[in-house]
Design a protein around this nucleic acid. Sequence first.
DNA 1: TACATGCTCAACCATGTAGTTAAGTATAAG
DNA 2: CTTATACTTAACTACATGGTTGAGCATGTA
Lengths: 113, 113
Amino acid sequence: MVEHVAHLDAVFHALADPTRRAMLGQLAERELTIGELATPFSMSFAGASKHVRVLENAGLVTRTIRGRTHLCRLEAARLAEANAWLRRYQRFWTARLDTLEALLLAEDEAKQK
Amino acid sequence: MVEHVAHLDAVFHALADPTRRAMLGQLAERELTIGELATPFSMSFAGASKHVRVLENAGLVTRTIRGRTHLCRLEAARLAEANAWLRRYQRFWTARLDTLEALLLAEDEAKQK
DNA sequence: TACATGCTCAACCATGTAGTTAAGTATAAG
DNA sequence: CTTATACTTAACTACATGGTTGAGCATGTA
């Protein structure tokens, strides 16, 4: 919980682009190759490839090279970090989730006993 | 839930900088002037002011001009939008919060009766 | 009135980003 | 062996970003 800071820079930057968010949306359905990720967008192949690279560098996507195709998979851990950061502010927009958080903490304590 | 897309660009971009995230952290404690927001950082006043402008443009901060000082307040609605976007991926990193989500839904249904 | 304070704006610099095209590499298929 | 496919890399353009300094504009204060 200390060098996550650099992660957050990369993750939030990666998420700050609609093309990349859409790519993650696709990857939430199933693993896709670079080509499959590129086709929905009116953009050169190389351009899409660069977006994938950004997602990869942010740790949001992992790549498995299989022959000449590169299979991409959604990697959620860094999304969880971003979510964890945001959760610190949840009390500002709703009290409901505070209750849930309390439930979680209680659950954790129960487990630790 | 349709032109939120542009919001998300701005919000995630604003969050992709450690200085700005730290500023939000300060604003979570209490309202602060631009000067107060600037002092913790080894950066010119004008530089800090520009960061605040970015937060403001992203809708994360509102400003109240009071005499010659500008009071800044955290505005959480856009953070909530970002969180809502992330929540769509929660199932990928934990099952626990799915349960909580189910609880919330059940709660909502109970209230609607 | 004069001066200090809080902040913005404009101009500038260095670097980064998003996109392109073109060429190169490796793998699969004929 | 030859060609098509999947992808990367490099070079380039245009523009955004993060930072600076210096000037300017209100608003307090003496």
